[in-house]
Nucleic acid binder design. Structure first.
Lengths: 136, 136
DNA sequence: GTACATGCAAAAAGTTTGCCGACTC
DNA sequence: GAGTCGGCAAACTTTTTGCATGTAC
């Protein structure tokens, strides 16, 4: 369970990183796999998953992970959210304003017809706050 | 692909509905299965999925479907969002205010230490807006 | 040379589906 | 009695993992 001490920059890892960053989109692991295989045909899907997870853990790429579909990866690590088309599944970036009327704002900005949004908060519940305090 | 014309209220369907509504929590399909099997031991997981999907489609329960975990179901159908503990996975309800400072507000209201939130918009992209118009 | 990384294949986890007999209306 | 529904098991999709070999440092 110990994380590795040193990272090695292998051909595969570099190609996987490039496939996510240079695409400028939000590929699934499977899509990354296809792209990488055009240059390195022997790369396995397991390797793709391992490296995407590792790169996301290092903060080099972002795990998008929208609900109800396979995970996607994003070369842009700055804070931003996403619009997803409920019909074709297409995903685009959205930078939220601080203020109100978010749906209208997003709709005007992206030319999507925004029909819904989901907000999900994460954090520590009261029990876990205590538990974390004890262990620190 | 045609949906059934008439719904029948079977013992199993009723028990599955009860397991979600009476629990007052956010069970996964597997958890619903366990609860139902205490009274009806021969119920299969497939039946549970079929009925949860059907009930959610009819708007009787809600599919929660947080990112990165198995789908969950919610007996409360009014508009509300969720806080999830990133440590133990516990999920609670949150009703959002219209205004700003959402994270602080959620934190004060739920006693969670809110460390992150995700916002995901859904709708129709420009292409699909046109396509939908054509078909209507 | 040593640890980390890859390839391959098997397995795990979550969900869907096909078939046929059973039950609801 | 017609048509929906449930039980069971198989299949499917996405992701993880074990193991022997390969490779960056």
């Amino acid at each position: 369970m110990e994380p590795p001490k040193h990272r090695r920059m292998t051909t595969q890892r570099l190609a996987i990183l490039a496939a996510v960053v240079e695409g400028g989109d939000h590929p699934t692991a499977e899509e990354v796999h296809e792209r990488v295989r055009q240059r390195l045909p022997r790369v396995g899907l397991g390797t793709v998953y391992r490296n995407l997870t590792l790169l996301a853990g290092a903060g080099i790429i972002r795990l998008v992970n929208l609900a109800g579909e396979p995970a996607r990866f994003d070369g842009k690590t700055e804070a931003h959210h996403h619009v997803r088309c409920s019909r074709c599944g297409r995903i685009e970036d959205v930078v939220l304003p601080a203020g109100n009327e978010m749906r209208e704002w997003v709709s005007a900005r992206t030319h999507y017809e925004v029909t819904g949004h989901r907000v999900e908060f994460t954090g520590l519940c009261p029990n876990c706050k205590q538990a974390a305090r004890r262990r620190t």
